[in-house]
Simulated assay, not measured.
Amino acid sequence: MQYENIKVEIQNRILYITINRAAKLNALNKYTLLELNSAIHELHNNSQAGGAIITGDGPKAFVAGADISEFADFDIEQGKLLAKDGHNTVFNLIENSPKPVIAAVNGFALGGGLELAMACHIRVASENAKLGLPEVGLGLIPGYGGTQRLTQLVGKAKALELIMTADMVTAEEAKTLGLVNHVTTQDDLMAKCEEIMNKILVKAPLAIASAIRAINAHFKASEGGYSVEIDEFATCFGTEDFKEGTQAFLEKRKANFQGK
Rank of each mutant, 00 (worst) to 15 (best):
residue 1 M to W: 03
residue 2 Q to G: 13
residue 4 E to W: 15
residue 7 K to R: 14
residue 8 V to E: 10
residue 12 N to P: 03
residue 22 A to M: 09
residue 23 A to V: 11
residue 24 K to N: 05
residue 27 A to P: 07
residue 27 A to H: 08
residue 33 L to V: 04
residue 34 L to I: 05
residue 37 N to I: 01
residue 40 I to G: 00
residue 40 I to D: 01
residue 44 H to Y: 15
residue 47 S to A: 04
residue 52 A to Y: 05
residue 54 I to A: 02
residue 58 G to L: 11
residue 59 P to S: 13
residue 61 A to K: 07
residue 61 A to E: 03
residue 62 F to S: 11
residue 62 F to E: 08
residue 64 A to F: 08
residue 70 E to P: 08
residue 71 F to C: 14
residue 71 F to H: 08
residue 73 D to I: 12
residue 76 I to F: 15
residue 82 L to A: 08
residue 82 L to T: 10
residue 86 G to F: 10
residue 88 N to C: 05
residue 88 N to F: 13
residue 90 V to R: 02
residue 93 L to A: 01
residue 96 N to S: 12
residue 97 S to N: 09
residue 97 S to V: 06
residue 102 I to G: 07
residue 102 I to Y: 02
residue 103 A to G: 00
residue 106 N to E: 10
residue 108 F to N: 15
residue 109 A to G: 12
residue 110 L to P: 00
residue 116 L to N: 00
residue 117 A to I: 08
residue 118 M to N: 01
residue 123 R to I: 13
residue 125 A to C: 02
residue 129 A to E: 05
residue 131 L to H: 00
residue 138 L to P: 05
residue 140 L to G: 04
residue 142 P to Q: 08
residue 145 G to L: 03
residue 146 G to C: 06
residue 146 G to A: 08
residue 146 G to M: 10
residue 148 Q to C: 14
residue 159 A to H: 01
residue 161 E to N: 06
residue 164 M to H: 06
residue 167 D to H: 14
residue 167 D to V: 09
residue 167 D to N: 12
residue 169 V to N: 06
residue 170 T to H: 00
residue 171 A to Q: 01
residue 171 A to E: 00
residue 179 L to D: 04
residue 183 V to S: 10
residue 184 T to V: 03
residue 189 L to G: 03
residue 191 A to G: 05
residue 191 A to V: 10
residue 192 K to S: 04
residue 194 E to L: 06
residue 195 E to D: 12
residue 198 N to K: 15
residue 199 K to V: 07
residue 200 I to V: 13
residue 201 L to G: 15
residue 202 V to P: 12
residue 207 A to F: 09
residue 209 A to I: 02
residue 210 S to W: 02
residue 213 R to V: 09
residue 214 A to M: 06
residue 215 I to S: 14
residue 216 N to T: 05
residue 217 A to E: 04
residue 218 H to C: 14
residue 220 K to Q: 12
residue 221 A to H: 14
residue 222 S to A: 03
residue 223 E to F: 02
residue 225 G to V: 03
residue 226 Y to P: 05
residue 226 Y to C: 13
residue 227 S to L: 14
residue 230 I to C: 09
residue 233 F to T: 15
residue 233 F to C: 06
residue 234 A to W: 09
residue 236 C to N: 02
residue 239 T to I: 06
residue 241 D to G: 10
residue 242 F to A: 10
residue 244 E to T: 14
residue 245 G to K: 04
residue 250 L to E: 14
residue 254 K to C: 02
residue 255 A to P: 09
residue 255 A to H: 03
residue 257 F to Q: 15
residue 259 G to P: 07
residue 259 G to K: 09
residue 260 K to R: 12
residue 260 K to W: 06
